[in-house]
């Protein structure tokens, strides 16, 4: 949980606050530890920028990268765009689902991983692709998936 002071600090770090609202919200989402923007956080940002909370809510629900509900520490995003689709991304969906024991859209019980779809991540040359944070994984096989999860499990504890 971010304190109001921490939230204000993030907002104030950006010049032209309102223009930078997406960057601010992405930063706060990352800093939340649970990859989401809570209602309290949104209200605090709204206060700090002097705009209605309903406008923040519009932004949060409009953009696919935001969540208003807690998610895992790592978000595994599997590309569902056509170039990955024809390269059988559905197979890697199954691999991740089996490996983690959850379905797309769900979070593991240990709150470490959330599985979700993403639009094209520009990794069509290595499709099927997935993205965790800033890192992009392509040409995925069952072994790759196992290894990736293992690495994050170890790193995340």
């Amino acid at each position: 949980m971010l304190t109001n002071q921490q939230i204000r600090d993030v907002v104030q770090k950006y010049e032209d606050g309102e223009e930078n609202i997406l960057a601010i919200l992405l930063k706060l989402q990352e800093a939340s530890g649970q990859n989401y923007i809570s209602e309290d956080c949104a209200v605090e940002v709204a206060k700090e920028l002097n705009i209605p909370a309903s406008k923040i809510y519009d932004l949060l629900t409009f953009h696919s990268m935001f969540s208003t509900k807690p998610r895992g520490k790592y978000i595994i995003e599997i590309c569902k765009s056509a170039p990955c689709h024809v390269n059988k991304s559905r197979e890697i969906v199954k691999m991740f689902e089996n490996e983690l024991g959850i379905k797309m859209g769900e979070t593991t019980a240990d709150k470490l991983f959330t599985l979700q779809f993403t639009s094209c991540i520009g990794a069509c040359d290595i499709a099927p692709a997935a993205k965790i944070g800033e890192k992009v994984y392509g040409n995925l096989t069952k072994e790759d998936v196992k290894k990736i999860i293992q690495e994050y499990r170890e790193g995340g504890k």
């Binding site: 209602e39 705009i51 909370a53 309903s54 923040i56 629900t61 409009f62």
Partner: peptide
Amino acid sequence: CVGVINSSFRSGEYKMTTAF
């Protein structure tokens, strides 16, 4: 300038609602 009702979500979920 009350700012209570606003658009939110997109596509089929697009709606006019309050924050959260």
